[in-house]
Design a binder for these strands. Structure first.
Length: 950
RNA sequence: GCAGGGAUGGCGAAAUGGCAAACGCAGCUGGUUUAGAACCAGUACUCUGAGAGUUCGAAUCUCUCUCCCUGUACCA
């Protein structure tokens, strides 16, 4: 009976679906285990073989945990809002919901045929109103919260309002906008409602603020930084300008320190933690106030080196700094304005690319040194960024290379404040070796002490204090897009109002076209039914909008709704918790569900989400924790980044002399151009199928080929899997030809999970023939019914030894996520058992269970053949390793001389060190090696090795 | 520039202080057999990027260098 994988796989996939084999229960005494994949964006291209790698690994782990008796939650869903569907809609007029639904269908079919043990009853789609209802709900919770620094957590905005009305904001220690004014309780109570709302926005965890964006007038849209190339739009090459727009932002900066500290509590890859750490960018130093001469103004600067304050010979402001206009002297005005204008014209990208050119302008103004009271010239320069720190620096040329270069370029003095250091060529920035000189009270102090003293003296003067600065900025949360979550927000008199949670979801309105409006409003500006009626609590036609807010007009309670939508990361920031209770219409999840499932035990996905999704999700989780909705401050205990599967492109070489295609081995010194050809045209020996190539692209139909030994040998190149290089391998083809179990095994067999590795379809025959051997081990080839003969015989000690060393290795491998070595172990095991002609049920049953996480279809079929009718192998207990079967009485000891192994000899494991030494020394080969010399030393490691030195 | 990861047969890799290259692909030899293929038996290659150190013993630990990948950057 043949191993008919197509039939077997279809049969068991149907069985699992019909029996809901992998449905996780919320009410059970079993211990929980939550295995999660990063859910995919369903793109139109479908899956290639690189995509399922992480899913296969997590599926193996989930199946293993079920065998181990856990109640496993292993859900899957779709991150289905996003740009490609919208762009397709702009081009074709097709509603993104339709394209998205079609793509999901393809994804589901492709995922199903690989045999994943997902609990599909819990599927979520971020673009489903039933799902985004809760994304909108979280937004409202954020709006209704502020960050209390004293409690170090988010609290209900009502607690802040009551504090304001009884004590004002003087004693409030909150994370808020820089420009928040101070007020007393009576002042607060005297404010108009609108004024109060404006002030509260400065505290809310999501707030409206003016933000600089990249606006492309020709395309009528905001562009992300990566959509701009050389200052013009990537698409169309239109100019892009910086524009201030009112946008929703998330006060993630409130959580900067906790996001940093939390990293120590989770088992995530170090590179990922490092990029989050860098992204948050904590730096410790001081804020120093420099007063401007002949002026009331002061300029605060942030520095990590307050110890070098006596070396500050000038100040530099970012050209965009708000004080530039006010402090510039009439004589310098023309130069400064020209410089500011020139900088504004340069794109971010230009500025970043060109860091070598030094430019700047003198404002004519002077600041006063806090200690020496000497005048310090104030310059502007584009090496100072408006968005970091205070947008101004105290320039210490002797201690900072950029300041040094600037000073040299503009001939500003470079005082040396370091003991025994030569600064004639470059700045000196080694903190550890720093001894301060020429600095009054700091003279002779090393770096750390000098910093402390400098801060102490600044505080005494009232011109500075110790400060921690973060690179992390608040996250802009508005997008001028159609295909995203609408905000549950309407505007009364320009102030944002939240729609009450019970009226959610606010569903995306229909629009005629998915482009921005002619007046430059986002696509939702095209919607005609997009106003909120506060009487009916419903979305109504825009025509009903009253003349609300206008002086003397009657307010009919119908207001315009927000036109922006939420960014891609909104839907993915709490989806892992929604899986716990995905159909709950009354709450994002029930308390029982979150209490039981708690958090993700294992999260597998790509490292490209390091500073996006994974940072925002941690932020929202901490917020949900503060507000008491979840019990874990970190949502995923362990995270693994699977590596990328790269493609192995195939290349033919065109001789530029005569246009002939030259086989790779014959190129020599010829001038050739490599051309990509489809990988499916090449066999495992790199031989090209010339006839198929001619059919594949007409360009090759008449080409002449220069062969070596009768074949055309292609070149190979490992590149990213992409249509462009004709190296994409579709899992559907692999499944049809070799089966899902072969695909699963092969993806694991390729190499360590976290490593990037090239795909080469040729190698799959190895694991495929392993499966055939496994099948043969169980199924008698002669018996027509495929019955197992001799299954009841007692296993031999040899059989048991093979089985138990396999159990041990496979269990260790799964726990260590070393799936590639498990596959080798299975191969060795089956090779051994085949050689032993093992037919014993006591061996074959546990082996089927061991294999089942990796190759579940064949395992189910063999389990059934072993007589377990109509039951799934998926929840059978994992075999228990028994050391007794591995017990050995003797070992083949390697005998080495000065560390080089010369021969082996068998010795009993019961022998003592001395007995081993005696036996080894007595051996004739030892005497041969020594040639009469007496060894200096004999190292005996019982059970391992003997080393003779001398 | 900075941070992180890496370098082992022709290829993917295994071995994390004790017999380097398990397992598989490709190659070679032989056999059974075929329309194509498939299957079985057997087999070679190579000495861990370079250099130094620690050790009885190093692919593995330490240092220096070279090269490759990934991320990130006038961050004060």
């Amino acid at each position: 009976m043949q191993y008919n994988f197509n039939e077997i796989e279809a049969k068991w996939q149907k069985y699992w679906a019909e029996n809901q084999t992998f449905k996780a229960e919320n009410n059970t005494d079993k211990e929980k285990f939550y295995v999660l994949d990063m859910f995919p964006y369903p793109s139109g291209a479908g899956l290639h073989v690189g995509h399922p790698l992480g899913y296969i690994a997590s599926d193996i782990y989930a199946r293993y945990k079920r065998h181990k008796g856990f109640n496993v939650l292993h859900p899957q869903g779709y991150d289905s809002f996003g740009l490609p569907a919208e762009q397709y809609a702009i081009q074709t007029g097709q509603h993104p919901a339709i394209t998205t639904a079609e793509n999901i269908k393809t994804y589901r079919r492709q995922l199903d045929q690989i045999g994943f043990s997902f609990d599909w009853s819990r599927e979520v789609r971020t673009s489903d109103p039933k799902y985004y209802k809760w994304t909108q709900w979280i937004f409202i919770q954020l709006f209704n919260s502020w960050y209390n620094k004293d409690a170090d957590k988010a609290e209900d905005i009502e607690t802040l309002i009551s504090e304001f009305s009884s004590n004002g904001n003087i004693q409030v220690n909150a994370v808020c906008d820089e420009d928040t004014p101070e007020f007393t309780a009576s002042e607060w109570n005297a404010f108009s409602s609108k004024e109060q709302q404006k002030i509260l926005l400065k505290y809310r965890l999501t707030y409206l603020a003016d933000t600089e964006v990249n606006w492309c007038p020709a395309l009528g849209t905001v562009l992300a930084n990566d959509e701009i190339v050389n200052g013009v739009s990537e698409r169309g090459g239109h100019p892009v300008i910086r524009k201030k727009m009112t946008q929703w932002s998330m006060r993630i900066t409130a959580y900067a320190q906790r996001l940093l500290d939390g990293l120590d509590t989770i088992d995530w890859p170090q590179p990922l933690k490092d990029s989050q750490t860098n992204w948050i960018g904590r730096s410790q130093g001081a804020e120093v106030e420099f007063r401007i001469q002949n002026s009331e103004l002061g300029i605060p600067v942030f520095t990590t080196r307050p110890d070098t304050i006596f070396g500050a010979s000038f100040m530099t402001l970012a050209p965009e700094h708000e004080l530039v206009g006010q402090i510039t002297t009439p004589e310098q005005k023309a130069e400064v304005e020209a410089y500011v204008a020139a900088t504004a014209k340069r794109s971010e990208r230009d500025r970043m690319a060109d860091v070598k050119t030094i430019s700047g302008a003198f404002t004519g103004a002077y600041a006063e040194h806090p200690f020496t009271k000497q005048p310090i010239p104030i310059w502007i320069g584009d090496y100072v960024l408006a968005g970091y720190g205070t947008g101004a620096v105290m320039s210490v040329p002797c201690g900072d290379q950029r300041d040094y270069d600037f000073a040299k370029h503009f001939d500003i003095s470079i005082p040396n404040i370091f003991e025994g250091v030569d600064i004639s060529e470059e700045a000196f920035a080694d903190k550890e070796k720093t001894i301060i000189a020429n600095s009054d009270f700091l003279n002779g102090l090393p770096y750390k002490k000098a910093v402390k003293t400098a801060i102490y003296e600044l505080e005494k003067l009232g011109q500075g204090k110790g400060k921690v600065n973060y690179r992390l900025r608040d996250a802009v949360f508005s997008r001028q897009r159609y295909w995203g979550e609408p905000f549950p927000v309407y505007y009364v008199d320009g102030m944002p109002q939240m729609i009450a949670s019970e009226h959610l979801p606010i569903e995306l309105p229909e629009v005629e076209k998915y482009l921005p409006t002619e007046t430059g409003e986002p696509p939702l500006g095209n919607a005609t039914v997009w106003a909120w009626d506060t009487q009916k609590d419903a979305v109504v036609s825009n025509e009903n909008i009253g003349l609300s807010g206008a002086e003397g007009q009657e307010d009919n309670g119908v207001y315009p709704l927000e036109l922006n939508t939420m960014p891609g990361w909104a839907g993915s920031s709490q989806y892992f918790n929604r899986y716990m209770d995905p159909h709950n219409d009354d709450a994002i999840f029930s308390k029982e569900a979150i209490d039981y499932w708690q958090d993700v035990d294992l999260y597998i996905g790509g490292s490209e989400h390091a500073t996006g999704h994974l940072l925002y999700a941690r932020f929202w989780q901490k917020f949900m924790f503060d507000r008491g909705y979840v019990s874990k401050e970190e949502f995923a205990k362990k995270l693994i980044n699977q590596g990328m599967i790269t493609g192995t492109s195939a290349l033919v070489y065109r001789n530029e002399e005569n246009g002939q295609l030259i086989s790779k081995g014959l190129i020599g010194n010829l001038n050739v151009t490599p051309l990509h050809v489809d990988v499916s045209l090449v066999n495992s020996s790199n031989e090209l199928d010339i006839e198929e190539l001619k059919k594949w692209q007409p360009d090759f139909a008449d080409a002449a080929f220069v062969l070596e030994e009768g074949n055309y040998i292609v070149g190979r190149e490992v590149e990213k899997m992409s249509k462009r290089w004709y190296n994409v391998v579709n899992p559907d083809d692999i499944v049809t030809e070799y089966g899902a179990d072969s695909l699963r095994l092969y993806e694991m067999f390729l190499g360590p999970l976290e490593q990037s590795k090239p795909w080469n379809t040729a190698g799959i025959t190895g694991v495929h023939s392993f499966l055939k051997k496994l099948w043969k081990l169980y199924i008698s080839q002669s018996g027509a019914d495929g019955s197992l003969s001799g299954a009841e015989v007692e296993p031999s000690p040899e059989n048991l030894k093979t089985l138990h060393k396999t159990i041990k290795k496979v269990e260790e491998d799964i726990e260590n996520f070393s799936f590639n070595t498990s596959v080798s172990t299975f191969m060795i095991c089956v090779n051994e058992l085949t050689a032993q002609k093992c037919k014993s049920r006591a061996i074959l049953e546990p082996l089927a269970i061991l294999v089942s996480p990796y190759a579940p279809h064949i395992a189910e079929e063999l389990w059934e053949k072993l007589g377990h009718d109509n039951t799934s192998i998926s929840k059978v207990a994992f075999p228990v390793f028994d050391e007794r079967h591995l017990a050995e009485s003797s070992k083949e000891y390697p005998i080495s001389f000065n560390g080089k192994m010369k021969f082996t000899m068998p010795l009993s494991l019961d022998l003592s060190k001395e007995e081993i030494e005696t036996a080894v020394m007595a051996h004739e080969k030892t005497q041969q090696q020594l040639q009469g010399r007496t060894p200096k030393k004999v190292i005996v490691v019982p059970g391992k090795i003997v080393n003779i030195v001398g």
